[in-house]
Design a protein around this nucleic acid. Structure first.
Lengths: 342, 342
DNA sequence: TAAGCCAATACAAACGTTTGCAGGAAATAG
DNA sequence: CTATTTCCTGCAAACGTTTGTATTGGCTTA
């Protein structure tokens, strides 16, 4: 259980002072070459490591980024975090992760501990039910860069990095229409979150542009789980005029839909087409593979981290929204016309 | 850009001293009820939050756990991290995540920054190539609890939480044999990592116990990727006496195998059976679904975190290995006898 | 040779919290 | 009314680093 080596130990050993050691280690020009060299050698020899808690206290902030996501064990978020960590590492920063479980109280608690621990910045993807952004304002009020990704507040003046959900949804539904589907259902998420609202709008626009009627009974709000997808599809397929395609705001519920249809021997894509959203890892592995909309999570993570570093460097705050264009990925579940071999 | 409110601000406002404030906030018995109440009210009113950087410096360590994994965006690790975060949160701790990309240098660098940032403990799953554990010893030498999970060093005196890989592999191969497969190939991982070594041993034991011959040409070491699985299977199937089953140490390469076989119209499980390892999320979604061995990642994460807190509480270090029993999950890819409907 | 200057290093304060110890007032005992 | 105890609060140091300012010694210059 060796004691940690401090700058003071080095100073004593070289018969000098902590300030000289500190400056030498930072290549301060006011320190002679010889001294700098001596210090660095001793530091290596004694295996000295800065106590960054101390420097953080001195500096008023630490080299740490806080990340708050609903849950870590989701392909998309795991990718985002991975991307964030990559960029943070390159810049010598650490990443603290917090999962909110979509619970507002947890978000608030995480915000508090992150502020407490002096993070240099916070990257957030909001939970389902978050409608009050005041807790987040505290972060910005303290001058800590705050960046939203994916699930961002709608009207707030803030920095957001989001997918163009509307465009993504539009592409998906347009594609279904082109494949000849006529009664396209939409499993949508809670509309207090802009991204779900936008996906719905993209869906509606695509229908309208194609001159197709909008049927309210085919638009169902749900919690984006596989189970919900399964149950809703069961309900939908019992309508007198059941849908012939499903566009879901989530791959998970799209998967639920697929599983129900397979169970009922309703052929996908021949009888019912499906397009999901997010390009979760499993979508290219289902039978048939799920068409979906790719959000390139890792890129969003990297991008968000980069924006954070930009923000930290500059001292003027400019609210802005960066919109990345998602990509429609067409797989078997929506390819009605072509016959792909099994 | 409001200034942070400190304990001193509160002291000034109540015309008392920082020490009293600190004690009051911690419900120190030596402080009167009335004072304690006054302090807490003011603290809430002024929105006071401890500066945990300062307390960490004072205490010599922070309420933070460091986690090092090869990569975050893998189902298993994402689950482990999620489990760790859950338990950490309950105990008021934060989690710093670091990905090593299976690179030794990155591991070392992460170790250094974690020590620098004064983490209270470190949880690690080793990278492929890590054979020198000296950098990790530094952690324990500083009295910081160090816990390995999943990929742990073999002989070191340390705390490890691992799956019983041998038993898992044994179950998997035994199952294949019971299904009537005779020439079972094994795609194994680098054997410097005990868990892959053990999986291989389980495989060998199962063969021997069943009186089946061990064929070296059917045992292939690879890097556990889908691509490798694909290519190796291609090679294997071109043998004069190709295998009739594949047991892979990784779901990813099992998937690669499956994809190759599908491409070649070789029927799974009728002609070739497959069992993977890890129960990655996608395995229940392939066509046919992949049999696999479940490692319950979230549980391992929770367990590891709990062990860390135990370790922090106690002051005697007892090296020990906690072995969790993995579970064979039989799905279609290895069910040769029964006919399941599609 | 003294004044001035530069380079190199030392001094000291600060970041915010925690905590052992000291001290003062009130309360109880004698 | 004094002595002792009890209860509460204040004082001051410490954690390790960083940085503005002071200080030292050696050197140049007039």
């Amino acid at each position: 259980m060796g004691k940690r080596v401090t700058i003071q130990d080095l100073a004593k050993e070289l018969d000098t002072t902590p300030s000289t050691i500190s400056r030498a280690l930072h290549d301060h020009p006011g320190i002679s070459k010889t001294m700098t060299k001596k210090v660095k050698e001793l530091a290596k020899k004694r295996n000295y490591r800065v106590n960054s808690v101390a420097s953080s206290l001195r500096a008023g902030k630490s080299k740490t980024i806080g990340v708050i996501v609903p849950m870590i064990n989701r392909d998309f978020f795991a990718n985002v975090i991975s991307g964030i960590e990559d960029v943070a590492f390159q810049n010598g920063f650490n990443v603290i992760i917090c999962q909110s479980d979509n619970k507002v109280e947890k978000e608030i608690q995480h915000i508090n501990t992150l502020i407490s621990s002096g993070v240099a910045g916070v990257l957030v993807s909001l939970g389902f039910d978050t409608t009050d952004y005041a807790p987040f304002n505290k972060i910005s009020q303290l001058g800590i860069p705050l960046i939203f990704f994916d699930r961002a507040p709608e009207h707030e003046k803030s920095i957001k990095i989001v997918n163009n959900d509307k465009a993504g949804a539009y592409k998906a539904v347009k594609h279904l229409i082109e494949m000849g589907y006529q009664r396209i259902a939409h499993l949508c998420g809670p509309s207090n979150l802009p991204l779900y609202k936008e996906r719905k709008e993209g869906y509606l626009d695509a229908l309208r542009d194609a001159g197709l009627p909008v049927e309210e009974r085919l638009i169902i709000t749900h919690n984006l789980t596989r189970e919900a997808g399964y149950n809703i599809t069961k309900k939908l397929m019992k309508y007198k005029n059941p849908p012939d395609a499903i566009f879901s705001a989530s791959d998970y519920s799209a998967l639920g839909a697929l599983l129900y249809l397979k169970e009922e021997r309703i052929k996908v894509p021949e009888e019912v087409g499906i397009v999901g959203f997010s390009n979760e890892g499993f979508t290219k592995l289902t039978g048939p593979e799920l068409s979906t909309v790719d959000q390139h999570g890792k890129e969003i993570g990297k991008y968000s981290a980069k924006v954070f570093f930009e923000e930290m460097a500059s001292d003027v705050f400019i609210p802005r929204t960066i919109i990345l264009d998602p990509k429609l990925i067409v797989r078997r579940s929506s390819l009605r016309n072509q016959k792909l071999s099994d």
